[in-house]
């Protein structure tokens, strides 16, 4: 009789002890998020790995075909074309970073109406993808917004290309739409980084005769170089997985299909689930490679960042003083 009672008793005792309490709360607080993570991220990922070796549709039979899907993807002309397109987006994102840096620097100094400018440049980021798609289809239509504005500037409307149809320009139009949406977000990040620079650095620098360019070159740039490099690396993965502008504006027609959009159509339009999974895994491995490269760069490239700032600043101030003395 005693044994039966004792086991639950011991259990209850243990549960009431500090150790038991810890265990309960750990399970209670972690169960749901971990379950969601496994069910909606890792399970699909593992399944995708499995599917990539099969020829299959959503329903019906499937056949094991080994690495054939990967071979097909890597020799596909459209895929190669889409990787070339990624270059457009990569160049676009570098332009975007440069613009963001320029305007962030402008706006972090005293500016009349600074908040208005900042808000107007940032707002496109808050517009949903679908709304943006409609807006830019409208914007680029022959004789509509862009053509009208260009004709104000003296361009002959007849000589302008069809922005979304002509194969030479349509990808540039899409990249421009993407820059329009995300530049403001980058700018806000850069402003945040610049604001965290110690204000005294500017003051002492300008006392020593440093001009605005010197302040930018020797104080701002070195102290936000980490976030700039990080964003440059992120834009590599971003341009590989560019999806939104072509999906919502052109639907990937006329040679605007990026890798991601190709994969989407492969899966949902042509129902080639196996091949789409192989594409997803190729994309994923590229992202992992870039991420590892990023970690290595930050481990070995930026370890003495703070020292180099102060050294550079000191050198710059010395040179300035020498000039003044003359």
């Amino acid at each position: 009789m005693g044994d039966r009672d004792r086991v639950p008793n011991r259990l209850v005792k243990w549960l009431k002890s500090g150790k038991g309490q810890r265990c309960i709360i750990m399970i209670a607080f972690m169960a749901v998020p971990l379950l969601l993570l496994v069910v909606f991220t890792y399970l699909p990922f593992i399944k995708m790995f499995e599917f990539s070796f099969y020829s299959m549709k959503y329903l019906g039979e499937r056949h094991f075909i080994g690495l054939q899907n990967y071979k097909d993807v890597l020799t596909d002309k459209e895929v190669m074309n889409s990787l070339l397109l990624a270059l457009y987006y990569l160049i676009g994102s570098f332009v975007q970073l440069a613009l963001a840096l320029y305007f962030a620097t402008m706006l972090s100094f005293k500016t009349k109406g600074g908040n208005f400018f900042k808000g107007a440049i940032f707002f496109p980021y808050l517009i949903s993808g679908i709304a943006m798609g409609f807006m830019f289809r409208f914007f680029y239509t022959r004789g509509f917004v862009l053509d009208t504005v260009l004709s104000w500037l003296g361009f002959d409307p007849e000589s302008l290309p069809y922005w979304l149809r002509d194969k030479g320009v349509n990808n540039i139009s899409l990249v421009a739409a993407s820059v329009w949406k995300y530049m403001g977000q980058n700018m806000v990040l850069f402003i945040g980084a610049i604001m965290s620079v110690d204000k005294e650095l500017y003051e002492s620098a300008s006392l020593d005769g440093a001009n605005k360019w010197h302040q930018f070159r020797y104080i701002i740039l070195p102290s936000i170089s980490t976030i700039i490099v990080l964003n440059m690396i992120l834009s590599i993965t971003g341009s590989l997985s560019a999806f939104e502008p072509p999906y919502v504006i052109t639907g990937g027609t006329r040679g605007t299909s990026t890798f991601f959009l190709l994969m989407h159509n492969m899966a949902h339009r042509h129902q080639k689930v196996g091949k789409a999974s192989a594409m997803a895994l190729i994309l994923f491995s590229l992202i992992v490679i870039v991420t590892i490269a990023q970690k290595l760069i930050f481990k070995y490239g930026f370890s003495d960042r703070n020292e180099s700032i102060s050294r550079k600043t000191a050198r710059m101030l010395k040179r300035q003083r020498a000039k003044e003395a003359k």
Binding site: V39, F40, T41, Y42, P44, K47, M48, F260, A280, F284
Partner: peptide
């Protein structure tokens, strides 16, 4: 690390299999 790694998996890409789940 599980969460960190999960951030690398492109969300839209896995929808093929998420749909089945």
């Amino acid at each position: 690390n599980l969460f960190l790694f999960a951030a690398l998996i492109p969300g839209i890409a896995t929808q093929v299999t998420v749909y089945q789940i």
